[in-house]
Design a protein around this nucleic acid. Sequence first.
DNA 1: GCAAGTTGCTAAAACGTTTTATAACTTTGT
DNA 2: ACAAAGTTATAAAACGTTTTAGCAACTTGC
Lengths: 359, 359
Amino acid sequence: MFRKVWTMVKRVTIRDVAREAGVSIALVSFVMNRDHRRADGSVAYRVSDETVARITEIAERLNYHPNSAASSLRSGRTRTIGVVVSDIANRFFSDIVRYIENVAYSAGYTVLCASTDEQADKLESMLSVLTNKGVDGLIIATCSGGADAVSRVVDSGLPVVLLDRDIAGLDVSRVMLDNVRAGAMGVGKLYANGYRRIELVSYDMGISSIGEREEGYRRAMREVGLQRFARIHRTTYGNVGDSVTRIVSDAVGRGVEAMIFPTNTLSLYALQAVNALGLKIPNDMAMICFDDNEVFDLYNPTIARIGQSVEMLGVRSFELLREKIECADTPSSTYIVEPQFIDGLSSAPRLTDKKHTTK
Amino acid sequence: MFRKVWTMVKRVTIRDVAREAGVSIALVSFVMNRDHRRADGSVAYRVSDETVARITEIAERLNYHPNSAASSLRSGRTRTIGVVVSDIANRFFSDIVRYIENVAYSAGYTVLCASTDEQADKLESMLSVLTNKGVDGLIIATCSGGADAVSRVVDSGLPVVLLDRDIAGLDVSRVMLDNVRAGAMGVGKLYANGYRRIELVSYDMGISSIGEREEGYRRAMREVGLQRFARIHRTTYGNVGDSVTRIVSDAVGRGVEAMIFPTNTLSLYALQAVNALGLKIPNDMAMICFDDNEVFDLYNPTIARIGQSVEMLGVRSFELLREKIECADTPSSTYIVEPQFIDGLSSAPRLTDKKHTTK
DNA sequence: GCAAGTTGCTAAAACGTTTTATAACTTTGT
DNA sequence: ACAAAGTTATAAAACGTTTTAGCAACTTGC
């Protein structure tokens, strides 16, 4: 009869490898973190090639895996970043997170996700959870009222990249859309196709990206001499559905010719409203949406929209973060992605005689 | 002139709190982890209420935050779980992850995400990254060929919950759809509405959920005496778009009456194919899709589909995992979510005379 | 043949917790 | 009054790394 065997196998540590190889644990540590090769002639650690080979072979044979808690404790880094967005189930953000994940993993980082639901107190609590976990840096899409919480994190010295939404006056890197141009682009395309009464549906939240898109809209309307038609409607986050339907219905009733929906979510609610009201697009109302969603190409008619490269947003935000993490005094930089207009029938050239039939 | 001030403020540790309070660090530790209150009369640690108050007050005042690396190192747990799915940008999974995140955070856990792109080698590498990070448990939606890698993790003793896709013979908890019933349900609804030539488009991957949906389809076709019409088409993951279009086109040419698309992704490609081929749904072909997507309700006609509660999938999988983590000898359990049919015009009762006009 | 440099390695001190064993003191029972 | 039991707290040993300081031994330059 054997004594009961301990189910959890004793973890193999750096010490076991060192003993087996007949060297010090320090040497094993150096071999495992390949940074001992004099990268640039600096006073790096030196190990003979044969020792490296021997130790790696033994580590492999013993199935050694470094304990990252111990490593983090001693070194102060976790090789983990936090990504805070408003909702990871929102396609715009899940796409970005996916790209971040890709590049982060291949750079040896893992990513902790957190969603704020656009609530500042959740943002604050997420930031505190993630910083307490000891992330090496954060990519943050802030929310309305989140400036203070983010500032505190930045002040603490943790590398931060602001994604999609800006907070003024912070010494951080940023990756965002040229929102003003994006807003103006919507007006430009519609104007060129003969629409004049162009209105915009927005939120009442204080989010830089939305605000700038509004600004772009206003500016563009002024530039083409349509400021008398410029009108921005506001919905409250959390009750967008009904709100958008009412707004669209009213606007159409008042003779609006085209509407811009400057957000992923707003756009989807807009389509819902269009269906509910039985509107014919673009005859009853033209529309330009934002971001990307499979529905835009499947809908009849296809939906014109202003997109942004989520790949660039994701990849660049990680790269900027990584620079800050791995090289302490990297200056902050800003990466602006340009909006891309993707055409669709929802903003097709206006048939000017359309309403005459009913008049 | 002052000497240059050190930018990174010295971290405040348990030791600082202990010194300030005039107690031992052990006591502070016990107070911070509130598990000393005799939960059930066990020989738990005891601290006087006034000491608790004093220490918490001081901890707060000094702005003490426990170092989780140290805690993990000593205790062996990280209060982090890993979630491995095929693609977090896939709406089905991003929805689930969102629910997991919600409940995990409120239970004091953080979640590390990883996507496999349905590639077994990526799955393996993700599993190894996550286990090396020391996650307390894993929620895994495996992929074709992933059984070995997952088995190894399970054998190592790490708590695992299988999500959406099963691997036979493993002692783990599971959360999945009643796939056989879901597959049969599609046939049932279509049959009831007068469709007979019902075919199914599937993948050539070995994923349990898809296989069982096929099985349900086959079984149901047999039960209603339609096995002569039963036909399963296969697309290869990675080149689904063209493939689906070709399959649908062929099938319609051969007089198919209805098709079932047993996956989120397949369904979207199916709609794309329908648009590309200019089919009239349901007259040219009825269809039933799977899972949920905003496009289903916005499309014209609305799309009937078989959905599953992603909330339950997410919440339950976390709960089952947590039980395993926090109570070592919890027996494995399985949670089956029932498919829900959400009606749409894409499977509306068949107009039997439709083709006679061309005959 | 000897100072100066180079190479390959080691010893040992952290890092900040958790947790066991035990001490000191107070109350209770008899 | 004294043992037993109960209460509150402490000391100290881990946990598994990283990283600094330094030590032999061997080259090299002169």
